[in-house]
């Protein structure tokens, strides 16, 4: 059969991108090194710190936080008890299960990766969200970038991440940040744009400058939406941590990955269940905080 279309590469776009990334790598190696050092140090420090805490203490702290967030400050009332008891029991049983399956260390590594990635994602995402809420031009630039970041298959980020940072936790964190930052930007933007115009106008009428309007009016009123964004960031980060294990990030994700490679159903299922438990705990706690108001 005759080919009716050319199989030749006419536009070698990938090559250009590769060349560009190469150039970035060689010219800014000091920067990548610094980022790598910073992230590696933070991750290992937090890992060591969390692992130094006895399991029971860690469990108690998380259970207390869960109870506090769910009971909305009414700690010792019947109502508070009714609201908070479910999640608290879930934390206790869930964490005991992970501990009992022998994956506590990996679970802590996963929590660390999620926390570090989330922190970086928020540090980047919220300011960009504010910027795109304040300026339509910024919004027009940021939006397609976010679309790109969200629709590009997550695995693709792993390749340049390895290229810059070799294997380990750092490329995992970087890929996770790229994957999970969009909701932080989007929901911050949305939250601020949805603040009623009359309240902002009242602020202006009383002589508030831009900074006062942002901190005293827009951010407080946008907070529920921003918190919903943070919740999304955390869940996306958790889902990315599994993929990140392909580039050497440690934790439950790497156990899942091993399970796939070794065709080990038991390991795969157990570690997968561990991720689910962490996801539910993180989601419910952050949601409870977000719904507080």
């Amino acid at each position: 059969m005759q080919t009716i279309y050319s199989m030749e590469k006419i536009i070698p776009l990938g090559e250009y991108i590769e060349r560009g990334i190469n150039a970035l790598e060689t010219n800014f190696s000091f920067l990548w090194r610094a980022i790598d050092d910073g992230i590696s140090w933070t991750v290992s420090f937090m890992n060591d710190f969390f692992l130094a805490i006895p399991f029971v203490v860690f469990l108690l702290v998380v259970a207390t936080v869960a109870y506090y967030a769910k009971s909305r400050g009414r700690l010792f009332s019947r109502e508070g008890l009714k609201r908070g008891v479910g999640l608290t029991l879930f934390v206790v049983f869930g964490f005991f299960l992970i501990y009992g399956m022998g994956y506590w260390k990996e679970a802590v590594q996963t929590i660390t990766l999620v926390l570090v990635s989330t922190a970086i994602a928020l540090l980047l995402g919220i300011p960009f969200g504010i910027l795109s809420a304040k300026s339509n031009i910024a919004d027009a630039i940021v939006k397609p970038v976010l679309d790109f970041m969200q629709t590009m298959p997550a695995f693709v980020y792993l390749i340049p991440a390895i290229f810059f940072f070799s294997v380990g936790n750092t490329p995992g964190v970087i890929a996770t940040v790229i994957f999970s930052v969009p909701p932080a930007v989007r929901l911050t933007n949305l939250g601020i744009r949805n603040v009623p115009g009359d309240v902002v106008e009242a602020g202006r009428a009383f002589g508030a400058n831009e900074k006062q309007i942002l901190y005293k009016i827009q951010l407080p009123l946008a907070m529920p939406t921003i918190l919903a964004g943070i919740n999304q960031v955390i869940l996306l980060a958790l889902s990315m941590v599994v993929i990140a294990s392909m580039v050497g990030a440690k934790g439950l994700g790497s156990l899942v990955y091993q399970g796939i490679q070794q065709n080990d159903i038991a390991k795969g299922f157990e570690s997968g269940l561990g991720i689910v438990i962490l996801a539910i705990v993180l989601d419910r706690i952050t949601q409870a905080v977000a719904n507080k108001k």
Partner: peptide
Amino acid sequence: SMVFQKFGLLPHRTILENAAFGLEI
């Protein structure tokens, strides 16, 4: 100072804090 049709109060602040808003600014 100005008074608005839709009040323009800050929902996350108490009445006292709202009344003091202009002075805070």
